[in-house]
């Protein structure tokens, strides 16, 4: 197993956090992982992205030019990264903020109304977890329970009261995809 993912969105959408959460979960499952952020002024209010690689063998480059999957939370990110996805790869896109179609026939696209669901849950800030939940439902590289367990280690302590909400958000994203598959 070797999965290369780029996650991208506005600064403040929690892109870096879900990247770290996935990397951390992979690590406690005994896998090799890397998390590589874009850094610099673009993080402050602009677009942010990170590359996460999860692998059962040694990771050479922490960068990828052809990711297996991308999780995109805003339009600039979808425009920038969906053309790079490996042939037949996966795009998880935030349909709450992006109404433009992905312009490639070969890709699998999962549309997640992440902001709407997050608002239903009472906090827009967990939209990132809904996106990650949806991704995990499709790509079972790490089980959902492990990801939930990792929340305590990855989230800063001042946000620990939000762990139940984050778990719920992961579940909602996960269920959304499973339901679609069932339907």
């Amino acid at each position: 197993m070797h999965e290369e993912i780029i996650m991208a969105g506005f600064g403040g959408q929690g892109i870096m956090s879900i990247g770290q959460l996935l990397a951390y979960s992979g690590m406690i499952k005994g896998l090799d992982v890397s998390w590589m952020p874009s850094y610099g002024p673009e993080m402050r209010g602009g677009t942010a992205n990170c590359t996460v690689i999860v692998s059962d063998s040694r990771i050479a480059s922490p960068l990828t030019s052809k990711p297996d999957s991308v999780i995109v939370m805003n339009l600039p990110s979808q425009d920038k990264f969906s053309p790079k996805v490996k042939e037949g790869g996966l795009v998880v896109t935030n349909s709450s903020l992006i109404d433009k179609e992905v312009e490639r026939e070969d890709l699998e696209v999962i549309k997640v109304p992440a902001n709407e669901i997050a608002n239903e849950l009472g906090n827009t800030r967990v939209a990132n977890m809904i996106m990650l939940g949806a991704y995990l439902a499709r790509k079972e590289i790490i089980d959902l329970d492990t990801v939930k367990e990792s929340l305590t280690s990855v989230l800063p302590e001042r946000h620990h009261d939000l762990i139940p909400l984050n778990e719920k958000a992961l579940d909602r994203g996960f269920e959304l995809v499973n339901e679609e598959v069932t339907v």
Binding site: D32, M36, P62
Partner: peptide, 10 residues
């Protein structure tokens, strides 16, 4: 380099 300094690994 900046990449090594900024990236996370186990």
């Amino acid at each position: 380099d900046g990449m090594l300094g900024q990236m996370m690994e186990p």
